[in-house]
Design a protein around this nucleic acid. Structure first.
Length: 846
RNA sequence: GGGUGAUUAGCUCAGCUGGCUAGAGCACCUCGUUUACACCGAGGGGGUCGGGGGUUCAAGUCCCUCAUCACCCACCA
């Protein structure tokens, strides 16, 4: 016996993965249609979380399935430099050492982070291996690899030439802690109670949550129809300010809601998105008051140097002192944008940045989505993506950080409006046409490069992989990054390659904590995949995390499902052990030579399972495929067929069936199935991962039905024996030859003392079979059974009632498919027979 | 304010294009150590599929409506 009593994953997993890797099993085969999955690159610097295990499990199941189906599967791994995220982590490290990023030059900081990432990235690579991801490591791509940078640059240039990219002074969401701008979709909004201050402002009283920005006010706005203020529109008013009196224009704008506050708004174009828009319409100046570090500048007069928070308090106090503060609404509910990393309130800040004109890029994307060039799983996400793209805003791709791809643009030192494209970003100053240009100090938003991931990794534009494998077949990601990654990949893919980047888009939901809440460090409810791996093994984690989970929906992490997965591994293991044991002495090549009715029945189940699992996986119904395999292996194969094998052994078929079971289970439980395959070693040097998907076997349906009949007899016998607590029971029959032929197996499976022929039956008549048989049973117990029969009869009568109504409905008979009507008729007949039997039994015993 | 999704057994959730008696895992009850497996086997209990309408021969599944709960988007100072 080579297999131990229980499967201990830790004893085999890493060896098995190494075996796969060494055997080049992850490399795409030369033959076969292409199937390509580009893996989303995880952050190279951070350990993987439980959500990643869902993410990679789903993809790996599909990859292994497609590989078995004979496809040339490329699963391409990568790692993301994760610009801002990683720099944040590194800044924390610096802070612990009492340093700050501002102590270093951009180059110094970049090099330090580079080294830091190199040190850490082994961690997540190992985790991918632990998850059993069958990716081709030789194609590993890092988002700072030259080919990524080069393609990002050529795309930038193309956008530049096509005038789809522009540089402009715009309001940008800005974190004063991290000192960088963000794209609009990166801001995390939070409901908050913020005091609403009513302050005197010349002839007005106006409400504001931000009194400290008043030094940047360049107008007061009112609604054009507001009678209260009509007299002031387009006039200049005098305002008593904290730094002395000043003058302001009053403008009329539809944006103002007369119902809100006092119906008059101060306009601070440099620090508020709405005000900026108003300023554009009325040609107002924008005056900056807040510095990049979050302090007020000289415009604030004596408040210069204070942080926004400090300044707010100081300004409010000064207003009170000057009796300019009318009242404070302390309970005002406001929505505040925050930095998703540090929670600092986002300042809208006037900055020169590079923007992509997304409206134009979105047009072909929307068309492609409407034309269904990409299949969505779940389909509902298509409409959401279209809605997003229809309302998409221009994309700020400049980031004021060191860790990232430098923007290949240079600015004339003497003319701020003169920008040139150049990719010699290693130089700070370049000379062109006798003029000096200074490099843009910013880097790209990480999503600008990863948004081009599918074609970059396949070596666009000249690589063979690109020619053969683009568009890729499956893209799979969390639905939380559908907009920032999925939608942008579609836009950029269509723009650069003129084709969608992937054919199928599968979105998974979040893995929530057991109590249904979000997993977060602060709540302390994060499940570490490493611990799950250590306790239950990789296959158990994989099956447990995909079980009962449908596309798009978030579901809670369920330890019970992990345990079920672990138990399933052990089931497979013990099936292997049993077959190893019983076929050791009768070695024979796996083969399909069914003899007994059980053999035929098992093959019919196998056929049905192969069909069903294939169809489910073809349509990404992954948890249904898993459930089908699980019950096929456990219920059909282990509980019925193997038990039947103990009575009549067909070693060749048993081996064949084990192989089929291992092949079907492999995508869901790669490690344990390969371990069994290798340990049994029936076929020299072969790897299960490279074995073809099982073919649907042939069988005799009539014989298969015979075993189904045996199952009915055995099941009913077991139920009666259990319900009536019978000890030693014999099954009698007059039915020759069926019962005679199957006497032994029925005895064994039903765990009774025997099956015997009689002249005429007495005892308890089995009702679930058309064959005539009785259980030996004393009268007293039989009477107890009448109750059970009663409820059986009621159920059957209900069914008959329903069937009769259905069949008496002319429209049903006319309109429903014939097959269905036939089935209903047959059912009615059968159920009527059943009732006759039950009634007869009842009469006999009561 | 707009959008999307969810509501099915005690818990966590499946249920694809409407069609056999609505399923799973876990939990629960009874029995059982039959040498593959107690990470097991056998049997069992438990659901008027959120409420109300409608379409259809047929609705958990499609439509309308109400309720509750999520999530996403949006500039109300």
């Amino acid at each position: 016996m080579k297999l131990g009593k229980t499967y201990i994953p830790q004893d085999y997993e890493s060896d098995i993965y190494t075996l796969w890797e060494k055997s080049q099993a992850f490399a795409p085969s030369e033959k076969g249609g292409k199937f390509t999955i580009v893996l989303p690159p995880p952050n190279a610097n951070a350990p993987l979380h439980i959500g990643h295990s869902l993410d990679f499990s789903l993809k790996d199941i599909i990859a292994r399935y497609q590989r078995a189906k004979g496809k040339s599967v490329l699963m391409l791994p990568g790692a993301d430099h994760a610009g801002f995220e990683t720099q944040v982590v590194y800044e924390k490290k610096l802070a612990k050492e009492g340093k700050s990023r501002f102590d270093f030059s951009r180059e110094e900081l970049y090099n330090q982070i580079w080294d830091h990432v190199q040190e850490n990235k082994g961690g997540f690579e190992q985790q991918l291996r632990d998850f059993g991801v069958s990716c081709d490591w030789s194609k590993y791509t890092f988002t700072l690899d030259p080919k990524v940078v080069n393609t990002a640059y050529s795309t930038f240039k193309k956008l530049w030439d096509d005038k789809l990219i522009y540089r402009g002074e715009r309001l940008v969401n800005y974190c004063t802690q991290h000192r960088t701008g963000f794209a609009d979709i990166e801001v995390a909004y939070e409901d908050q109670t913020t005091p609403l201050y009513y302050m005197k402002y010349g002839p007005f009283t106006l409400a504001t949550t931000r009194p400290e920005t008043k030094f940047g006010d360049t107008a007061v706005a009112v609604h054009p129809d507001d009678e209260r203020y009509k007299q002031y529109v387009n006039k200049v008013i005098k305002v008593e300010g904290l730094n002395g009196p000043f003058e302001l224009r009053v403008v009329a704008d539809e944006y103002v809601d007369p119902e809100f506050g006092t119906g008059a708004v101060k306009i601070t174009p440099a620090h508020d998105f709405n005000d900026w828009d108003v300023a554009q319409r009325h040609n107002l100046k924008a005056v900056r008051v807040i510095n990049h570090d979050g302090t007020l500048n000289h415009k604030a007069g004596k408040f210069e140097g204070l942080s926004v928070q400090e300044a707010r308090k100081a300004v409010v106090k000064a207003l009170k002192d000057k009796k300019l503060l009318e009242k404070i609404d302390e309970k005002y509910q406001n929505r505040v944008g925050k930095c998703y990393k540090c929670g600092t309130v986002i300042e809208p800040m006037l900055l020169d940045q590079w923007f992509i004109d997304m409206k134009k890029l979105a047009i072909p994307a929307i068309k492609a989505l409407k034309d269904k060039k990409i299949k969505f799983y779940p389909e509902a996400k298509r409409a959401q993506t279209i809605t997003y793209l229809e309302k998409v805003r221009d994309w700020n791709i400049s980031r004021q950080i060191a860790w990232g791809i430098p923007i290949p643009a240079f600015q004339n030192v003497n003319d701020p409006d003169d920008w040139v494209y150049d990719d010699s970003v290693d130089k700070e100053i370049i000379e062109k046409d006798g003029k000096n240009y200074r490099r843009d100090p910013d880097v790209f938003d990480t999503w600008f490069s990863s948004g081009q991931w599918p074609y970059i990794t396949l070596d666009y534009p000249d690589g063979e992989a690109y020619k053969d494998r683009y568009p890729t077949d499956l893209m799979e990601m969390g639905s939380d990054i559908l907009y920032q990654w999925g939608a942008r990949m579609i836009c950029l893919g269509l723009y650069v390659t003129d084709d969608v980047p992937f054919k199928d888009l599968y979105l998974h939901g979040m893995v929530r904590s057991e109590d249904g809440r979000k997993m977060s460090k602060s709540l302390g409810n994060v499940v570490n995949p490493k611990e799950v791996l250590n306790e239950y093994g990789s296959d158990a984690l994989r099956m447990g995390i995909i079980a009962g989970r449908s596309a798009g929906d978030s579901a809670a992490y369920s330890p019970a499902k992990i345990v079920a997965g672990r138990n399933f591994c052990n089931k497979l293991w013990n099936i292997g052990r049993f077959i190893e044991g019983v076929t050791d002495e009768n070695p024979g090549k796996p083969g399909v030579k069914p003899k007994s009715s059980a053999d035929h029945w098992m093959l019919s189940k196998l056929q049905h399972t192969i069909k069903s699992v294939s169809s489910n996986l073809d349509n990404y119904r992954i948890n249904e495929a898993y459930e089908t395999v699980y019950h096929f292996v456990w219920d059909d194969f282990a509980d019925w067929y193997i038990e039947a094998s103990k009575h009549e052994l067909n070693p060749e078929l048993l081996r064949y069936l084990l192989e089929s079971v291992l092949k079907l289970s492999h995508p869901f439980a790669p490690f344990v199935t390969e371990t069994i395959w290798q340990t049994l070693g029936w076929t020299n040097e072969s790897l299960l991962i490279q074995e073809p998907w099982p073919k649907q076997p042939k069988f005799d349906d009539k014989k298969a039905q015979e075993f189904q009949e045996i199952i009915s007899i055995v099941s009913e016998t077991r139920a009666v024996v259990s319900t009536l607590e019978l000890k030693k029971t014999t099954l009698y029959y007059t039915d020759i030859p069926f019962l005679e032929e199957n006497a032994e197996i029925i005895t064994k499976l039903a765990m009774i003392s025997g099956v015997e022929e009689v002249e005429d039956g007495s005892g308890l008549h089995l009702t679930s079979t058309s064959h005539n048989c009785w259980l030996s049973i004393d009268r007293e117990r039989a009477e107890n059974y009448v109750k059970k029969l009663e409820s059986n009869q009621q159920e059957a009568e209900k069914r008959i009632q329903a069937l009769k109504i259905r069949l008496s409905n002319k429209n049903y008979v006319k309109q429903a498919p014939k097959k269905l009507v036939e089935e209903s008729k047959a059912q009615l007949e059968e159920t009527e027979k059943l009732i006759t039997k039950i009634k007869a039994e009842k009469t006999r015993f009561s």
